[in-house]
Amino acid sequence: QSGQISSIVGIGDEPQPSGLPTLAQFITFNPNVPIFSTQPALKRIVAIAFDRAIREIIGPVVERAVTIATTSARELVLKDFATEPSEERLRRAAHQMVQSLAGSLASVTCKEPLRLSMVSHLRTFLLQNGYTEQTLPEQAIFMMVADNLDTAVSIIEKTAAEKAAPEIDDALGPAYYSRRIHRERSVQPFYDVSVFAGSRYPTTLPDALRLKPGGLSSQQLRVYEDFHRISQSMEKVMRSTAPARQDPSTFFPQASTTLGQNPSQLSQPQEELPQVLTLSQALER
Protein backbone atom coordinates (compact mmCIF):
# COMPACT_ATOMS: atom_id res chain seq x y z
CA GLN A 1 0.00 0.00 0.00
CA SER A 2 2.82 2.44 0.72
CA GLY A 3 3.81 2.14 -2.93
CA GLN A 4 0.45 3.55 -3.85
CA ILE A 5 0.99 6.49 -1.54
CA SER A 6 4.31 7.44 -3.09
CA SER A 7 2.70 7.39 -6.49
CA ILE A 8 0.29 10.14 -5.57
CA VAL A 9 1.01 13.02 -7.89
CA GLY A 10 -0.62 16.27 -8.70
CA ILE A 11 -2.27 16.71 -5.35
CA GLY A 12 0.03 19.60 -4.52
CA ASP A 13 -1.24 21.43 -7.59
CA GLU A 14 -4.81 21.23 -6.41
CA PRO A 15 -6.14 24.70 -5.71
CA GLN A 16 -6.70 25.10 -2.00
CA PRO A 17 -10.38 24.81 -1.25
CA SER A 18 -11.61 28.31 -0.72
CA GLY A 19 -15.00 29.30 0.59
CA LEU A 20 -15.38 25.91 2.22
CA PRO A 21 -12.22 26.02 4.32
CA THR A 22 -13.66 24.06 7.19
CA LEU A 23 -14.52 20.86 5.38
CA ALA A 24 -11.20 19.11 5.97
CA GLN A 25 -11.38 19.56 9.71
CA PHE A 26 -14.91 18.12 9.89
CA ILE A 27 -14.22 14.95 7.97
CA THR A 28 -14.63 11.86 10.09
CA PHE A 29 -12.03 9.14 9.62
CA ASN A 30 -13.29 5.90 10.96
CA PRO A 31 -10.71 3.79 12.80
CA ASN A 32 -12.33 0.72 11.28
CA VAL A 33 -11.30 1.92 7.83
CA PRO A 34 -7.54 2.01 8.34
CA ILE A 35 -6.76 2.66 4.67
CA PHE A 36 -7.89 6.24 5.01
CA SER A 37 -7.20 6.92 8.66
CA THR A 38 -3.54 5.90 8.70
CA GLN A 39 -2.27 7.45 5.48
CA PRO A 40 -2.06 11.25 5.44
CA ALA A 41 -1.88 11.47 1.64
CA LEU A 42 -5.12 9.52 1.29
CA LYS A 43 -6.68 11.74 3.92
CA ARG A 44 -5.97 14.69 1.67
CA ILE A 45 -7.43 12.91 -1.32
CA VAL A 46 -10.63 12.34 0.62
CA ALA A 47 -10.83 16.00 1.59
CA ILE A 48 -10.26 17.16 -1.97
CA ALA A 49 -12.72 14.67 -3.44
CA PHE A 50 -15.46 15.65 -1.01
CA ASP A 51 -14.74 19.31 -1.54
CA ARG A 52 -15.14 18.83 -5.29
CA ALA A 53 -18.40 16.97 -4.78
CA ILE A 54 -19.85 19.74 -2.63
CA ARG A 55 -18.72 22.44 -5.03
CA GLU A 56 -20.24 20.65 -7.99
CA ILE A 57 -23.67 20.70 -6.37
CA ILE A 58 -23.90 23.59 -3.94
CA GLY A 59 -24.45 26.49 -6.36
CA PRO A 60 -27.70 25.59 -8.12
CA VAL A 61 -29.13 23.77 -5.07
CA VAL A 62 -28.65 26.75 -2.78
CA GLU A 63 -29.90 29.22 -5.33
CA ARG A 64 -33.08 27.29 -5.99
CA ALA A 65 -33.76 26.66 -2.29
CA VAL A 66 -33.20 30.30 -1.35
CA THR A 67 -35.44 31.58 -4.15
CA ILE A 68 -38.32 29.29 -3.24
CA ALA A 69 -37.98 29.80 0.52
CA THR A 70 -37.79 33.58 0.15
CA THR A 71 -40.91 33.68 -1.99
CA SER A 72 -42.90 31.47 0.39
CA ALA A 73 -41.73 33.22 3.52
CA ARG A 74 -42.42 36.68 2.08
CA GLU A 75 -45.97 35.83 1.04
CA LEU A 76 -46.83 34.10 4.31
CA VAL A 77 -45.30 36.51 6.83
CA LEU A 78 -46.77 39.54 5.08
CA LYS A 79 -50.19 37.94 5.41
CA ASP A 80 -49.71 36.73 8.98
CA PHE A 81 -48.10 39.94 10.23
CA ALA A 82 -50.55 42.31 8.56
CA THR A 83 -51.52 43.90 11.89
CA GLU A 84 -48.13 43.54 13.58
CA PRO A 85 -46.56 46.98 14.12
CA SER A 86 -43.06 45.80 15.05
CA GLU A 87 -40.67 45.34 12.13
CA GLU A 88 -38.32 43.53 14.52
CA ARG A 89 -40.88 40.83 15.23
CA LEU A 90 -41.62 40.59 11.52
CA ARG A 91 -37.91 40.29 10.73
CA ARG A 92 -37.32 37.68 13.41
CA ALA A 93 -40.20 35.47 12.29
CA ALA A 94 -39.26 35.87 8.64
CA HIS A 95 -35.67 34.84 9.36
CA GLN A 96 -36.72 31.83 11.39
CA MET A 97 -39.02 30.68 8.62
CA VAL A 98 -36.85 31.39 5.60
CA GLN A 99 -33.74 29.84 7.11
CA SER A 100 -35.55 26.68 8.07
CA LEU A 101 -37.29 26.37 4.68
CA ALA A 102 -34.18 27.13 2.63
CA GLY A 103 -32.04 24.76 4.70
CA SER A 104 -34.61 21.94 4.51
CA LEU A 105 -35.13 22.33 0.78
CA ALA A 106 -31.41 22.49 0.09
CA SER A 107 -30.65 19.46 2.19
CA VAL A 108 -33.44 17.26 0.78
CA THR A 109 -32.53 18.25 -2.77
CA CYS A 110 -28.80 17.69 -2.49
CA LYS A 111 -28.53 14.57 -0.35
CA GLU A 112 -28.81 11.82 -2.94
CA PRO A 113 -26.90 13.58 -5.76
CA LEU A 114 -24.24 14.58 -3.23
CA ARG A 115 -23.81 10.98 -2.06
CA LEU A 116 -23.35 9.77 -5.64
CA SER A 117 -20.98 12.61 -6.41
CA MET A 118 -18.85 11.97 -3.30
CA VAL A 119 -18.50 8.29 -4.22
CA SER A 120 -17.68 9.10 -7.81
CA HIS A 121 -15.08 11.78 -7.02
CA LEU A 122 -13.39 9.63 -4.40
CA ARG A 123 -13.21 6.70 -6.84
CA THR A 124 -11.82 8.94 -9.58
CA PHE A 125 -9.13 10.42 -7.35
CA LEU A 126 -8.08 7.00 -6.10
CA LEU A 127 -7.93 5.66 -9.68
CA GLN A 128 -5.74 8.61 -10.63
CA ASN A 129 -3.42 7.84 -7.75
CA GLY A 130 -2.33 4.28 -8.06
CA TYR A 131 -5.48 2.25 -7.54
CA THR A 132 -7.02 0.18 -10.30
CA GLU A 133 -10.62 -0.98 -10.77
CA GLN A 134 -9.45 -4.28 -9.23
CA THR A 135 -7.74 -2.85 -6.14
CA LEU A 136 -10.22 -0.05 -5.46
CA PRO A 137 -11.36 -0.37 -1.81
CA GLU A 138 -15.10 -0.13 -2.63
CA GLN A 139 -16.30 -0.86 0.89
CA ALA A 140 -13.96 1.69 2.42
CA ILE A 141 -15.21 4.27 -0.11
CA PHE A 142 -18.82 3.63 0.80
CA MET A 143 -17.99 3.83 4.50
CA MET A 144 -16.12 7.10 4.08
CA VAL A 145 -19.05 8.60 2.19
CA ALA A 146 -21.66 7.23 4.60
CA ASP A 147 -19.69 8.61 7.54
CA ASN A 148 -19.42 12.07 6.03
CA LEU A 149 -22.57 12.54 3.99
CA ASP A 150 -24.44 14.32 6.78
CA THR A 151 -21.55 16.70 7.33
CA ALA A 152 -21.41 17.53 3.64
CA VAL A 153 -25.18 18.01 3.52
CA SER A 154 -25.09 20.26 6.56
CA ILE A 155 -22.52 22.51 4.86
CA ILE A 156 -24.94 23.01 1.96
CA GLU A 157 -27.89 23.38 4.31
CA LYS A 158 -26.10 26.02 6.37
CA THR A 159 -25.01 27.91 3.28
CA ALA A 160 -28.62 28.04 2.07
CA ALA A 161 -29.88 29.22 5.45
CA GLU A 162 -27.24 31.95 5.63
CA LYS A 163 -27.92 33.19 2.11
CA ALA A 164 -31.66 33.28 2.72
CA ALA A 165 -31.50 35.85 5.53
CA PRO A 166 -30.30 38.87 3.48
CA GLU A 167 -32.64 37.80 0.64
CA ILE A 168 -35.72 37.98 2.82
CA ASP A 169 -34.56 41.30 4.28
CA ASP A 170 -34.41 42.64 0.74
CA ALA A 171 -37.83 41.28 -0.05
CA LEU A 172 -39.35 42.70 3.12
CA GLY A 173 -37.56 46.05 2.99
CA PRO A 174 -40.73 48.00 2.15
CA ALA A 175 -42.65 46.17 4.89
CA TYR A 176 -40.03 47.04 7.52
CA TYR A 177 -40.05 50.62 6.30
CA SER A 178 -43.81 51.07 6.34
CA ARG A 179 -43.94 49.91 9.97
CA ARG A 180 -41.23 52.32 11.03
CA ILE A 181 -42.92 55.20 9.22
CA HIS A 182 -46.29 54.32 10.66
CA ARG A 183 -44.91 54.36 14.19
CA GLU A 184 -43.38 57.78 13.67
CA ARG A 185 -46.46 59.31 12.13
CA SER A 186 -49.46 57.68 13.69
CA VAL A 187 -50.85 56.40 16.95
CA GLN A 188 -53.47 54.30 15.19
CA PRO A 189 -53.08 50.49 15.05
CA PHE A 190 -50.97 49.33 12.13
CA TYR A 191 -52.69 47.69 9.17
CA ASP A 192 -50.96 46.45 6.05
CA VAL A 193 -53.53 47.77 3.62
CA SER A 194 -52.30 45.68 0.69
CA VAL A 195 -53.12 42.45 2.54
CA PHE A 196 -56.62 43.52 3.44
CA ALA A 197 -57.28 44.93 -0.01
CA GLY A 198 -56.33 41.64 -1.66
CA SER A 199 -59.23 39.60 -0.41
CA ARG A 200 -62.42 40.00 1.57
CA TYR A 201 -61.54 36.98 3.70
CA PRO A 202 -59.03 38.35 6.21
CA THR A 203 -61.69 40.62 7.67
CA THR A 204 -64.51 38.13 7.48
CA LEU A 205 -62.79 35.27 9.26
CA PRO A 206 -64.48 34.11 12.43
CA ASP A 207 -63.39 36.00 15.51
CA ALA A 208 -61.13 33.31 16.88
CA LEU A 209 -59.12 33.16 13.66
CA ARG A 210 -59.02 36.82 12.70
CA LEU A 211 -55.92 38.98 13.13
CA LYS A 212 -56.42 41.44 15.98
CA PRO A 213 -55.48 45.09 15.76
CA GLY A 214 -52.33 45.84 17.72
CA GLY A 215 -50.32 42.83 16.61
CA LEU A 216 -49.62 39.24 17.51
CA SER A 217 -49.58 37.53 20.88
CA SER A 218 -46.55 35.58 22.09
CA GLN A 219 -48.69 32.45 21.85
CA GLN A 220 -49.25 33.19 18.14
CA LEU A 221 -45.58 33.89 17.49
CA ARG A 222 -44.73 30.39 18.65
CA VAL A 223 -45.61 28.82 15.31
CA TYR A 224 -42.77 30.81 13.73
CA GLU A 225 -40.41 30.02 16.58
CA ASP A 226 -41.06 26.36 15.83
CA PHE A 227 -39.24 26.86 12.52
CA HIS A 228 -36.17 27.80 14.51
CA ARG A 229 -36.59 24.73 16.69
CA ILE A 230 -36.80 22.50 13.61
CA SER A 231 -33.51 23.79 12.20
CA GLN A 232 -31.84 23.54 15.60
CA SER A 233 -33.01 20.00 16.21
CA MET A 234 -31.84 18.97 12.74
CA GLU A 235 -28.38 20.20 13.62
CA LYS A 236 -28.54 18.37 16.91
CA VAL A 237 -29.57 15.15 15.22
CA MET A 238 -26.55 15.49 12.97
CA ARG A 239 -24.20 16.01 15.86
CA SER A 240 -25.63 13.16 17.86
CA THR A 241 -25.47 10.67 15.00
CA ALA A 242 -21.76 11.19 14.51
CA PRO A 243 -20.58 9.12 17.50
CA ALA A 244 -23.16 6.43 16.81
CA ARG A 245 -21.48 5.85 13.47
CA GLN A 246 -18.46 4.41 15.22
CA ASP A 247 -20.41 1.19 15.24
CA PRO A 248 -19.43 -0.58 12.00
CA SER A 249 -22.92 -2.08 11.60
CA THR A 250 -24.36 1.37 10.87
CA PHE A 251 -22.04 2.12 7.97
CA PHE A 252 -23.97 0.60 5.13
CA PRO A 253 -26.96 2.19 3.49
CA GLN A 254 -29.32 -0.64 4.42
CA ALA A 255 -28.35 -0.31 8.08
CA SER A 256 -29.06 3.37 8.19
CA THR A 257 -32.79 2.68 8.34
CA THR A 258 -32.24 1.97 12.02
CA LEU A 259 -32.09 5.65 12.95
CA GLY A 260 -34.65 5.25 15.70
CA GLN A 261 -37.01 3.33 13.49
CA ASN A 262 -37.97 -0.24 13.22
CA PRO A 263 -37.60 -1.32 9.58
CA SER A 264 -40.61 -3.64 9.94
CA GLN A 265 -42.78 -0.52 10.24
CA LEU A 266 -41.91 0.36 6.69
CA SER A 267 -44.01 -2.36 5.17
CA GLN A 268 -46.84 -2.18 7.66
CA PRO A 269 -50.20 -2.23 5.96
CA GLN A 270 -51.96 1.07 6.07
CA GLU A 271 -55.55 2.10 5.90
CA GLU A 272 -56.68 3.48 2.54
CA LEU A 273 -56.50 7.22 2.91
CA PRO A 274 -59.77 9.02 2.23
CA GLN A 275 -58.06 11.64 0.06
CA VAL A 276 -56.69 8.93 -2.22
CA LEU A 277 -60.15 7.58 -2.81
CA THR A 278 -61.77 10.96 -3.43
CA LEU A 279 -58.95 11.80 -5.76
CA SER A 280 -59.44 8.78 -7.96
CA GLN A 281 -63.18 9.36 -7.97
CA ALA A 282 -62.62 12.97 -8.95
CA LEU A 283 -60.55 11.89 -11.91
CA GLU A 284 -63.32 9.65 -13.14
CA ARG A 285 -65.72 12.55 -13.43
Binding site: S72, L76, K79, D80, M97, S100, L101, S104, L105, S107, V108, K111, E112, R115, S199, Y201, P202, L205, L209, L211, L216, Q220, V223, Y224, D226, F227, I230, M234, V237, P253, S256, T257, L259, Q261, Q265, L266, Q268, P269, Q270
Partner: peptide, 28 residues
Protein backbone atom coordinates in the same frame (compact mmCIF):
# COMPACT_ATOMS: atom_id res chain seq x y z
CA UNK B 1 -55.25 30.13 3.91
CA UNK B 2 -56.16 33.32 5.74
CA UNK B 3 -56.13 32.17 9.35
CA UNK B 4 -52.93 33.09 11.12
CA UNK B 5 -50.09 30.59 11.03
CA UNK B 6 -51.89 27.64 9.41
CA UNK B 7 -49.91 27.43 6.16
CA UNK B 8 -46.57 27.84 7.99
CA UNK B 9 -47.67 25.02 10.29
CA UNK B 10 -48.49 22.80 7.29
CA UNK B 11 -45.11 23.63 5.76
CA UNK B 12 -43.47 22.49 8.99
CA UNK B 13 -45.30 19.19 8.66
CA UNK B 14 -43.92 18.82 5.15
CA UNK B 15 -40.30 19.76 5.78
CA UNK B 16 -40.12 17.76 9.00
CA UNK B 17 -40.39 14.49 7.04
CA UNK B 18 -37.69 15.45 4.51
CA UNK B 19 -34.98 13.71 6.59
CA UNK B 20 -36.92 10.42 6.23
CA UNK B 21 -36.86 10.51 2.40
CA UNK B 22 -33.17 9.65 1.77
CA UNK B 23 -32.41 7.00 2.84
CA UNK B 24 -36.09 5.99 2.81
CA UNK B 25 -37.15 5.58 6.44
CA UNK B 26 -40.64 7.11 6.41
CA UNK B 27 -43.00 5.17 8.69
CA UNK B 28 -46.67 4.53 8.00
Amino acid sequence: WHAYGVIPALLQEITSVYPALFPPTLTG
